[in-house]
Design a binder for these strands. Structure first.
Lengths: 323, 323
DNA sequence: GTGAAAGCGCTAACAT
DNA sequence: ATGTTAGCGCTTTCAC
């Protein structure tokens, strides 16, 4: 059997309450009693049971982190920062990879609620998860709209889009195309597309239905480049798409940046390390993490506080050899 | 207040026991009663409280996943698979980024034990975390030795190292150097180094003290290449190091693969997508995840079962343009 | 086939 | 400054 508070109490010859007091630094305890209790804890190698504590306190110090897949440089960098900040604040993070499947996401939502998480940070694109509609549950979304009352945090997608496209124009591109994810997703990242379309006279935007399948992405880009041989600039809505553009251009013997210039979006550490040639719009991932967590904590501490519904953080153009 | 089992019972006009029976499909319930209860659950939008359940059952269905940083293609791919498999088995994953700091890791261990996790998968390099010594707690390690009794899962590092070096030799390299992490880490990945040293007459092995600092890595590699201008082959112990080698070679106008050939290790999806030129040893990450989880589940179900202490899964050479 | 009652390990009134 | 007691929400013997 695991050693429990009662065992510590017996060994220290005090009541369970006293042990609890020592554990939580609450109320008055004489120095002597505290010593005795600490000694017993040490000797018995006692670890307080957080499950019992949570049951009583109705607070678990758990938060759920729901994302499409952690195996993606943007989400893994985000997750690192989020987890780190939470850990410093005494919160634990439950990782959920929805794989863009609505059923999985619903199951995760049920699980998180059942486990009494104190809040959820959601970075997925699935709408229609009823559980998120529960107004009692603190939720913050990153880069997409879940419901009218859930705060959204992200980068300034419109400014980022403009910056990317303007840079291509400044570099002399005349035929710029844009490659993005599914247009029906209700995410502020659609503003990247909007910026492109606002800046270009005859916009040519392509949608990749499945953002996480590289082979499909490569095939699509090959077709696009063959259909539009005049293309001399691509604004890709994320760095992975940009990387595939670069790869396909290499295969087709299109010289980058001489014949074709490419700008991506995200600017994660991983991408900048593996593909240092890539020009991209760098998101303030650490700031996004900080802001999301602090909003969530606010919502948890103060359920009916008014958090700003949308927060867009500044981006930065990182110029490298693909432009 | 949250709706609880008792509320459901009242509404369905049955006892709490009966509701519990319906919830858990245990014992005999008449079809009619079940219907009533299910209706009440539906109407009240009831979610069973897993915390209370766990307290009673002494099983939380939580596992801890401790890694240096999720913001790394190898660990994020591993984490994706591990989380997915666990989720299918009804287990939830608590993410812990130790950042290679022993204090953080100790704090995580305490936290995980306090939270009554059913088991832990550890992929970090820190020894001396006392909490892991608790023989009652099921633990599986990936790619390093934690204690004599904790099973280790990884790729066949020796075979992988041989394959990488032999490939360089076959491609005509005469001056092959090896770049690896700190030599004092007690991990089976040291076998990559051993394979290199077994195959090469005058081995030149460099240690990078901090594997997660790119700037330091780049500076070190620059020095190494300047000191050994005759180098025509590099076996890097992971793909991120290999990527930095490639970058530095580009800066120094060393032609890859003509003047210098590079082989990495890991072969993650992310690296192969962002840096498709890289020749590398591909680890069976999904198999590593499956094996680790299944060993852990075994240990959980059957605390004194004899799991094989070391499992090394087969690797594969992926030849691309850097060799 | 269903219910009453005890208890999982902890905390917080309330008493002393 | 310390102890007694009830109860967090659930499950499970043990009755009926």
């Amino acid at each position: 059997m695991k050693v429990k508070l009662e065992d510590v109490a017996k060994r220290a010859e005090v009541s369970p309450t006293t042990v609890s007091r020592v554990l939580n630094n609450r109320g008055y305890i004489s120095e002597q009693t505290r010593k005795k209790v600490e000694k017993a804890i040490e000797e018995l190698n006692y670890y307080p049971n957080d499950i019992a504590r949570s049951l009583f306190k109705k607070r678990t110090n758990f938060i759920g982190l729901v994302l499409p897949t952690i195996n993606n440089p943007f989400f893994s960098e985000l997750a690192l920062y989020i987890e780190n900040i939470c850990s410093d604040l005494g919160y634990k993070v439950i990782l959920c990879n929805s794989l863009m499947q609505i059923d999985k996401e619903k199951a995760y939502a049920r699980m998180l609620i059942g486990h009494q998480v104190d809040g959820i940070i959601v970075c997925t694109y699935n709408r229609g998860v009823e559980a998120y509609k529960n107004p009692k549950l603190p939720i913050v979304a990153i880069d997409h709209y879940l419901s009218p009352t859930i705060p959204v945090v992200g980068s300034d997608n419109y400014a980022g889009g403009r910056m990317a496209v303007q840079h291509l124009i400044d570099q002399g591109c005349r035929s710029i195309i844009h490659i993005n994810g599914p247009i029906e997703l209700e995410t502020p990242t659609q503003m990247r597309r909007k910026a492109y379309e606002d800046l270009i006279d005859n916009p040519i935007t392509y949608e990749l239905i499945n953002l996480f399948d590289e082979e499909y992405t490569a095939v699509s880009i090959r077709q696009i480049l063959k259909k539009h041989p005049e293309t001399d600039g691509i604004f890709a809505s994320d760095d992975l798409i940009a990387a595939t553009c670069l790869k396909v251009a290499n295969e087709l013997n299109i010289q980058v940046p001489d014949q074709l210039k490419i700008v991506g979006y995200d600017g994660t550490e991983t991408v900048l390390r593996l593909l240092p040639q890539l020009t991209t719009i760098k998101q303030p991932i650490q700031e996004i993490a900080k802001t999301s967590v602090s909003k969530l904590m606010n919502l948890i501490e103060n359920p009916d506080c008014d958090e700003a519904l949308e927060t867009f953080l500044p981006i930065e153009l990182v110029i490298n050899e693909t432009t």
